[in-house]
Design a protein around this nucleic acid. Structure first.
Lengths: 354, 354
DNA sequence: AGGCCAGTCTGCAACGTTGCAATTCCAGGT
DNA sequence: ACCTGGAATTGCAACGTTGCAGACTGGCCT
């Protein structure tokens, strides 16, 4: 049983192929009785337009690619869910591709070695910079998601990573912490996002007159729990921080796990702030204080920006900034809240006394 | 600058269109020098075959659909990552669709209202039963992932949910627990998976001569952290269990969170076992004891089964069973162990991991 | 010399759709 | 009766590819 095509429907309804096509695409130009007859025939035969033929004729597919490092990281999974949901509303289908944060794979996928045929790409880079992306050969339009403003003529949608990191660190300072570590730099990647967060961290320290200790800036290989565990183990052994700012929630949860193993209390001994506001962080013990990007908006704006770019490729590259929020939970509670910071035991500060 | 097509390459290489096509598809029938010349032309022009045209001609796309309830649930995210990775090796591209566990949407997506044009579908059902799927009109071949054996002529790939649940409960019994609750039935859905796990739970109780208390079987609306929190709150208030078997890790983490809020110790006061072995459960505090399906194998077998089905649609429906493993961690430690197992045993969990 | 075969290469047609331009039809104005 | 104009419908061509059948070589066998 072959799938019905326009010809089959046309024969059944006693009209020409072209009229059926019109009913499907521009119903208003077809007289009501004819249209009715054709619609019935479509219904009876279960006709569905052949997307391949349509694409061949019109040159586009209504399919976009979502290129992420790894779809199983909660942050990207949550983002993907929103992108897929919203894309559907816009009549688009989403193909998911994983780069593992590998520069070569990122390059390949962008050049359409595989997802080829997609009308546009939403790209979450780890290795490539905006310049590299904008320099690349002609290919479907790209919107970079999570990348920071800068030069290059690509569209970018992201939160203010530097500002958000600054806020996070200020929050830790407000808790009376002075030895604040940063976990998550990735010197082996040109991960611009991590760089921005580090910049925010450093700027915050300068703001409040704290000295940056190199041993408190901990690089990691990847951004997973295990890396967070390792980083925290190193910090506990050598640098004795009283707070840790992790560049992702997964790092933060790993760090907290190490604290639990070693009997270090969070937040009393060490306060921890994460980044991304992944779902599990809301339910972990202790619940994670974190920077929450407005993911809904992130997905939505990435898609509409892509749509505008697809409509007019001559547009200048735009930088769209999406709001974020520091969500204060247990791992770094509000200053003056019930949980006393470790510092309170030192003679110099006695919050319990006030 | 138009995209190069076969004609362009043919002109450049001084051969016919057909020969170029042969170089691309069946290089062995083209004489070496000609082939060389054509390959150069392809390189110079950056030619890539037009997939739409190819699909139109050959009738298939090398695209499969992955239909899941929600891609942002860690379990499905991890599964998706593996499916995408493995599909790529098989030359397939993956389209992700979300059903939210809604029966109507599941039906629609299977009938190809949208993902239309996919060559096959890997389907993780929540609402539809295998019979309903096998009854549905002609459409691309489907493999059900996670669904239990039974009647219907669909291919199914899953672990032995009933057996796994049985093991989990036996483990709790071995810890000396007698008031063991089950959290995760979904009476409003025909969620066969939940039904199987419940069956395993009940069977285990019978095995050891414990009585099933209806108030210990807690239904939930969805399978998220919040539902786990609510379920545990209800249990603590009314039923005083000494162990809880949750049908997903997310439920378990929510349950543990509620315990933490109410000062109930896990596992001392209440032992908790989850299901799915999601990444975060390995690093949570306490680390989660859970049933670990071999996700790697699950993804792999789903794809090869689909491939075989696509090759021969007359095959009888197959039931593929994938191994699982009860991973014992802190939330329900080994019987007779110290309250908490040695930390070094924790992250080792992926059954396939070596 | 004629015939044949294997190795290469080519032309035609078709997949199902839609842009474009042409055609038909009919009502209404002259 | 004839013309005009708009609405409704239609036919042709093309998108880029591949299946199929055929055509052209040159060498080798009888």
């Amino acid at each position: 049983m072959r799938r019905a095509n326009l010809k089959d429907v046309a024969d059944r309804a006693g009209v020409s192929i072209r009229t059926v096509s019109n009913v499907v695409n521009t119903p208003e130009v077809v007289a009501r009785p004819t249209r009715q007859r054709v619609l019935e025939a479509i219904e009876e035969l279960g006709y569905r337009p052949n997307l391949a033929a349509r694409q061949l004729r019109q040159g586009h597919r209504e399919v976009i690619g979502l290129v992420v490092p790894e779809i199983d990281s909660p942050y990207f999974a949550e983002l993907a869910a929103l992108v897929v949901r919203h894309a559907e509303r816009m009549g688009w289908t989403v193909i998911v591709e994983q780069t593992d944060g590998d520069a070569t794979r990122e390059q390949q996928l962008l050049d359409g070695a595989r997802g080829q045929g997609v009308d546009g790409i939403i790209f979450c880079p780890w290795a490539m910079t905006a310049e590299e992306v904008s320099r690349r050969a002609t290919a479907p339009p790209v919107v970079m998601l999570g990348e920071q403003p800068g030069m290059g003529s690509v569209d970018r949608v992201a939160i203010d990573n530097r500002g958000a990191a600054l806020e996070a660190v200020h929050h830790l300072v407000a808790l009376g912490r002075t030895r604040i570590a940063a976990v998550g730099l990735q010197p082996h990647l040109s991960n611009e996002t991590a760089r921005q967060r580090l910049a925010g961290y450093r700027a915050a320290l300068v703001d409040v007159g704290l000295v940056a200790h190199p041993e408190l800036e901990v690089p990691v290989e990847r951004l997973h729990h295990a890396d967070g565990m390792g980083a925290m183990a190193g910090l506990l052994a050598k640098s004795k921080p009283d707070a840790v700012f992790c560049f992702t929630d997964q790092l933060a949860l790993g760090a907290i796990r190490t604290c639990a193993d070693q009997g270090v209390r969070v937040p009393e001994d060490i306060a921890v702030v994460g980044f991304d506001d992944i779902e599990v962080g809301r339910y972990s013990v202790p619940a994670l204080t974190t920077v929450a990007p407005d993911k809904q908006r992130l997905a939505e704006l990435a898609l509409t920006t892509l749509q505008e770019r697809m409509a007019d490729s001559s547009l200048p590259g735009r930088d769209v900034v999406v709001p974020h929020l520091l969500v204060v939970r247990e791992s770094a509670p509000a200053a003056g809240s019930a949980t006393r910071p470790a510092r309170s035991e030192l003679p110099s500060s006695t919050p319990s006394g006030k």
